[in-house]
Simulated assay, not measured.
Amino acid sequence: MASLDEKIAAMKAAKAPPKRHQEEHYSQAQHAWRMVTELVAGLGIGFGIGFGLDSLLGTSPWLLVLFTMLGFAAGVNVMMRSAKEIQEKRLAETAEEDEGNTHGD
């Protein structure tokens, strides 16, 4: 019975439709927007903190510039981590597909 279940599962996997190009493109667009949002959020938060501190301390525009730069750096850092995470996920998926192809023969 177990071997019959394995054969049925193998047949279903073989007949599974390939991933459509539109779905892949949509996924890439999601990742791109995520990265843009992270960068803009870093800039916005840095700008807000710098503007607030400049208003309180009267050091205009020095803290605004400083914290905007720090916000940009933080945004880029988060973007790079997201890109690395996405790359590792894709490499793991590719490795699984390759492993499945070698064992399926």
Rank of each mutant, 00 (worst) to 15 (best):
A2Y: 06
A2W: 04
A2E: 10
S3W: 06
S3Y: 06
L4Q: 13
L4W: 10
L4N: 11
D5R: 15
E6R: 08
K7S: 10
A9R: 14
A9V: 08
A9H: 07
A9T: 11
A9D: 13
A10D: 12
M11C: 06
A13P: 05
A14E: 14
A16M: 15
R20S: 08
H21F: 08
H21N: 01
Q22D: 06
Q22L: 10
E23R: 01
E24D: 07
H25M: 03
H25I: 05
Y26K: 05
Y26I: 12
Q30R: 04
Q30M: 09
H31P: 04
H31Q: 10
A32E: 03
A32C: 07
A32Y: 06
R34L: 15
M35Y: 02
V36G: 10
V36K: 10
T37V: 11
T37N: 02
E38L: 15
E38D: 03
A41Y: 04
A41W: 03
A41P: 04
G42D: 02
G42I: 01
G42L: 03
L43W: 06
L43S: 07
G44N: 02
G44M: 07
I45C: 00
G46K: 05
G46N: 08
G48C: 14
G52L: 05
G52D: 01
L53T: 08
L53W: 09
L53C: 12
S55W: 13
S55F: 15
L57I: 14
G58Y: 07
T59F: 09
S60A: 08
W62H: 10
W62Y: 15
W62K: 05
L64F: 07
L64H: 03
L64P: 04
L66T: 14
F67N: 04
F67Q: 00
F67Y: 07
T68S: 13
M69G: 15
M69Y: 05
M69W: 04
M69F: 14
L70K: 01
L70V: 15
A73W: 06
A74D: 02
A74H: 01
A74V: 07
V76W: 03
M79V: 12
M79T: 09
M80Q: 11
S82I: 12
A83T: 14
A83P: 12
K84A: 13
E85P: 08
I86N: 06
Q87Y: 09
E88W: 02
E88T: 07
R90H: 08
R90F: 01
L91A: 07
L91S: 01
L91M: 06
E93H: 09
E93G: 05
A95D: 12
E97F: 13
D98P: 01
D98C: 09
N101E: 06
T102H: 05
H103G: 10
H103K: 08
H103N: 05
D105E: 10
D105C: 11
D105S: 12
